[in-house]
């Protein structure tokens, strides 16, 4: 982290005058080194880079998702799964590689601009407005849209019926699984061309996890391509059309979910046999 003098608080954490937890989202940078490879709908192509001025975390890593597909990024802890997703979303300093959406180069766009171009992103943590009601969360999701958002909201309520019942409750009061539904619903409100989920099942019980996966499949059936990072590799690969196994920031294995599940190497190294 490069710190300037204005970021030195000398350890002050006086809550009577300052409020912690400000925005952490920083915009990444890009270079012109962009080898052309595939023609996928969304592709992070040969990405190399890291956070700030720190060392590279990704090394020539390529991740792509096609229309109608669920693509899953799996791998051991610290493999750069979330980093790969953040790179596609423009929150990483890329030294090489590029990102294209629907054939258009978006490498130079800020995360916000990528949202405007049709990328929906659900962060792993802090992915809802806890003090706003469920309905307000969805409304905020559609902030950039100036047209009628009611059909989109109805669609979200169809996908996640429980949210309709709880629409006037503050989102922070919901259970873990319901919060994740709000988070996904919020991202869907822009009617994105592609949905990116960073560990949507982190910290929820196995039953809720199964339900969440069912919902994700349903979202995918509405025609939105989904790219997600998952800790629960086996379940994720079972529903994946395409899987990426990352090891130390590099593509270790790529294939359909079934292929990867069947792959001896993949099973041995981290699916636990």
């Amino acid at each position: 982290m490069s710190r300037n003098a204005w970021q030195e608080d000398r350890g002050n954490k006086d809550r009577s005058i300052t409020r912690s937890g400000g925005g952490t989202m920083a915009r990444g940078t890009a270079t012109d080194v962009r080898p052309d490879t595939t023609h996928a709908f969304l592709v992070g192509d040969s990405m190399t880079g890291g956070y700030g001025t720190g060392g590279d975390i990704l090394h020539d890593c390529t991740i792509a998702v096609d229309p109608g597909e669920i693509a899953v990024i799996v791998g051991p802890n610290g493999a750069g799964k979330s980093t790969g997703m953040k790179a596609i979303f423009g929150m990483l300093n890329l030294r090489q590689g590029g990102v294209r959406l629907d054939g258009e180069d978006i490498t130079d766009l800020s995360p916000q601009d990528r949202v405007a171009r049709g990328m929906g992103f659900v962060p792993q943590t802090s992915n809802i407005f806890t003090s706003l009601t469920v309905e307000e969360n969805l409304e905020m999701g559609a902030f950039i849209r100036r047209d009628d958002i009611r059909p989109a909201m109805e669609q979200v309520f169809e996908l996640f019926p429980i949210l309709k019942d709880k629409r006037h409750q503050p989102a922070g009061e919901l259970s873990g699984g319901q919060r994740q539904q709000v988070a996904v619903g919020r991202a869907l409100m822009t009617q994105p061309k592609v949905l990116m989920l960073d560990e949507p099942t982190a910290g929820v019980s196995p039953i809720v996890m199964d339900e969440l996966f069912d919902r994700i499949i349903e979202v995918s059936r509405t025609g939105i391509p989904i790219l997600m990072v998952e800790q629960n590799a086996r379940q994720a690969l079972e529903i994946a059309d395409r899987g990426y196994v990352l090891v130390q920031g590099r593509n270790a294995h790529t294939g359909t979910g079934k292929e990867l599940l069947a792959d001896e190497d993949v099973r041995r190294s981290f699916l636990g046999g």
Partner: peptide, 21 residues
Amino acid sequence: RTGKSMRAYSDNEDLALLSGI
């Protein structure tokens, strides 16, 4: 809408940015 966006920003800056606020 503007008032809600202010509350949203106060609640979660990053997510507000992601929502285009």
